[in-house]
Amino acid sequence: MNTNKTVRKTVRHLADGREILYFDDSPHPPPRDAVDERDLPTVAAASEIRRDPLTGEWVAMAAHRQTRTYKPPADLCPLCPTRPGKPSEVPEPDYDVVVFENRFPSFAQAVHGERTTVDGAGIVPLAPGKGRCEVVCFTSDHDRSFARLSPARVRTVVDVWADRTADLSTLDGVEQVFPFENRGEEIGVTLHHPHGQIYAYPFVTPKTELMLRTASAYRAEHGRHVLGDVLAAERRSGSRIVAEGGHWTAFVPPAARWPVQVLVVPHRQVADLTELSAVERDDFADVYLRVLRGCDALYGRPLPYVAGWHQAPVHGDRELSWLHLELFSVLRAKDKLKYLAGSESGMAVWVNDATPEQIAERLRAAAEPLTR
């Protein structure tokens, strides 16, 4: 793969003022000057966040999202390029990778209000949900999936994730940037065009806070990063490794919670996507595609999954962070879902129906015919 590839970035605006960004990896991309001719009302996000006094966790309230687009027919997909008589969120007739502000955001820069408390009682902190939510379309092909992208296109997407991480980290109120993909109706996806999202949160997420506390305690005791030691142990053992490259290893975590769960971890500690080198970005594309294609072969059907990047908070703890991608699925058999039991949803005490070693073996066996 060409580590010196060039991606052209073009910034435009949609009819309601939202930004749309085109990332072209084609050798001779067309000018991106199409005009969004839809008559759209101004986005009116009314997000707020409230901190649970019993757990210390922030919860977002975004009631305006009740009217968001829900399972449109394929010929009216809002993520496909615009066709004559069928305008979409992307005014151009074609694109490589495109990013635009979500029309129904959970967090937005335009929200207003003061930091206060619910009912003025001083118990439950309340603040504007100030951040940003973006949609990332990986391809203009409605029927493709991330697993069927070319390595070159995956590399473009990695560059896009890094670009958006850098830009979103500069916005007012943003504390953490989370690029992720939800795929499959079983996960809750309502738009089937291959796409992901990026949330720029106004707080550090509960999971990240817990991981940072754990990393801090481990470093104080051992002088090393916990994920670095986990990675080294997994590479020595090999029993849970799913795919490996020169710069990344994908493995089932040794205390996996989900029926399918994989961590994709760089061999070098970096805090976020912006710190990855060109060769590391290339190698990720190869390793991750092998993981995804093995996942789709596991049950002989497209695997529903969530895949998201764990990155450092914007304003600190970079030395405690080790960038990695986590993929998990609720599908425990071809036609069976894992439903969270009372212990799991109520107390966050997980019970897995398979061992991590069994999960890894199944993924390797599914992927083996694809590598012959």
Rank of each mutant, 00 (worst) to 15 (best):
T10K: 07
V11P: 03
E19F: 02
G56Q: 02
W58P: 01
A62K: 04
H64E: 14
K71W: 04
D75T: 15
G85K: 10
K86P: 01
V90E: 04
P91H: 05
E92F: 07
R103W: 03
I123N: 05
P128F: 12
C137I: 15
D141V: 12
A152H: 13
V154Y: 13
V158F: 07
D159M: 15
A162C: 04
D163L: 14
T170P: 01
V174S: 08
E175Y: 04
N182H: 01
T190G: 02
H192M: 02
H193A: 09
I198V: 14
V204R: 03
L210H: 12
L212A: 12
S216L: 11
R219C: 10
E221N: 05
A233Q: 00
S237P: 00
R240V: 01
F251T: 05
R257P: 07
L263T: 03
V264R: 07
V270S: 12
A271H: 05
D272Q: 13
E275W: 08
E280R: 01
R281G: 05
D286I: 10
L298A: 06
G300P: 06
P302R: 04
H310Y: 06
P313L: 04
V314T: 06
H315T: 05
K336Y: 06
W350Y: 15
T355P: 00
R362P: 03
L363W: 10
